[in-house]
Amino acid sequence: MAKGFYTDTTACIGCKACQVACHQWNDIPAAEGGRTELSGDSYDNTQTLSAENWRHVKFIEQITEDRTQEGFLQGSRWLMMSDVCKHCVHAACLEVCPTGAIIRTEFDSVFIQQDACNGCRACVAACPFGVVDIGRDGKAHKCTMCYDRLQNGREPACAQACPTESIRFGDIPDLMKLADARVAQLKEQHIDAYVYGKEDIVGGLNAFYVLVDEPHVYGLPEKPELGSKNVDEGFALSGVAAAALAVTGLVSFRKSRMDEKAGAATEDHH
């Protein structure tokens, strides 16, 4: 049974407990020893998922100039979203990994086996969500969906820590029902909500979201593609180029000989 995260961003209060719980459970040190810099980007001083930040809360201020607010999420609003590895059903990182380090677990999550990874960074370049990154130890790291906790019957640390149950963990079909219900409830309040992460997004995300604005506002791609999408075409076009090269090369090599045979007489005069 596929398990994963359903995050209702309309219930996120931006407290970052998910970030701290993740760091604490996985014993990941703070960036720069805790001495990061004020980014100026709202309350987001983490800025990106990385080998050390497996949860990242984004803050998007949408306050109108006249500061009016007609209702919840209508008019001025401040959107918050806890970003995480999407544990895609069709995972670009898993697909491209040449060492087989990235696997799919029995919970349908995507997991990087640290004893296999050799740090080639193909996964870093392949993930369309900008999730995976290489760590100081030279290996790729990302959210493990607390695989160790799942194997012991617990839920991931972030889901447990989230005070408003914005992040919920469970069986994907059950969570999707909750998400659809929430979308319906928001639509009744005239809020343009939708689920991001159904099958249309790389086959489905095992960490999906209810959002209230377009994906790019949240720094998410609208129609992410797998890295491999253009590979076949790339090889085919290379084949064409190779053919063109072969023909012109072979002809050049032979032609010169023919020319040469023809011009042998005149050359002798030189």
């Binding site: 984004k58 960074r121 993930c127 720094g219 998410l220 609208e222």
Partner: peptide, 24 residues
């Protein structure tokens, strides 16, 4: 989010936002 990347996303919805793999 790097503002440049956000701009790209806005203009090209299907773009991914992969992190730089630090291939040097």
């Amino acid at each position: 989010m790097h503002p440049a990347l956000l701009q790209i996303l806005a203009a090209n919805p299907q773009s991914g936002v992969a992190l730089p793999p630090r291939w040097g």
